[in-house]
Simulated assay, not measured.
Amino acid sequence: MSDSPLDHAVLSALHEVMEEEFVVLLDTFLADSQERLRQIRQALADGDSQAMRLAAHSFKGSCSNMGAPLLAGLCKQLEDLAQRGQLASAPALVEQIEAAFLVVHDLLQDERRGLTR
């Protein structure tokens, strides 16, 4: 796992493929991520390990595809915890995921602003 919150090679490749639609992709990822976090928090509140596993798995895939390796790794850890039904240690991990997402969110917003000038 990389130490950087974003893999700029992945972002560059996505930008090259998506061209003008790259901004839409960024916006979609950011909105979708908010929903995934909401689902994770709800699953935690409900003590629903299956819902947590599914939400963490989905968020992990999105983060991987968007070049957010640290966030993807945290989601993988949460997915694994939920798979084993070990939600007792999940709250601290969910906090880490939320903090990591804020960093990624801000970096992607900066990236977006640079594209729309």
Rank of each mutant, 00 (worst) to 15 (best):
A88T: 13
Q39V: 00
D48R: 08
A56N: 03
A51Y: 00
V94D: 09
D32Y: 00
Q77C: 06
K60L: 02
L93A: 03
G73E: 14
L93E: 12
Q34Y: 03
A31P: 01
I97Q: 12
A100W: 01
E98N: 13
G73T: 09
D80S: 09
S64G: 15
V23W: 04
A82C: 09
T116I: 05
T28P: 05
L14A: 05
F101R: 07
E16M: 08
G61P: 03
A88P: 01
E95T: 07
L70T: 14
L54F: 06
D32L: 11
P5L: 11
V103H: 04
A55V: 04
L78W: 10
H105R: 15
D46T: 11
F59T: 08
L93T: 12
L107S: 07
V10T: 14
S33W: 01
H8S: 05
L25Q: 12
K76I: 03
V103D: 10
G67E: 04
L25T: 03
Q86P: 01
D110M: 11
Q77T: 15
S49I: 12
A56G: 10
D7F: 01
E19R: 09
E20Y: 01
K60Q: 09
E16I: 02
E21W: 00
V17I: 10
L102V: 03
A51M: 02
A72Q: 15
S64I: 08
L108R: 07
D7G: 02
L6R: 12
A72D: 13
P69L: 02
S58I: 02
G85S: 03
E20M: 00
F101Y: 14
S58P: 10
M1F: 02
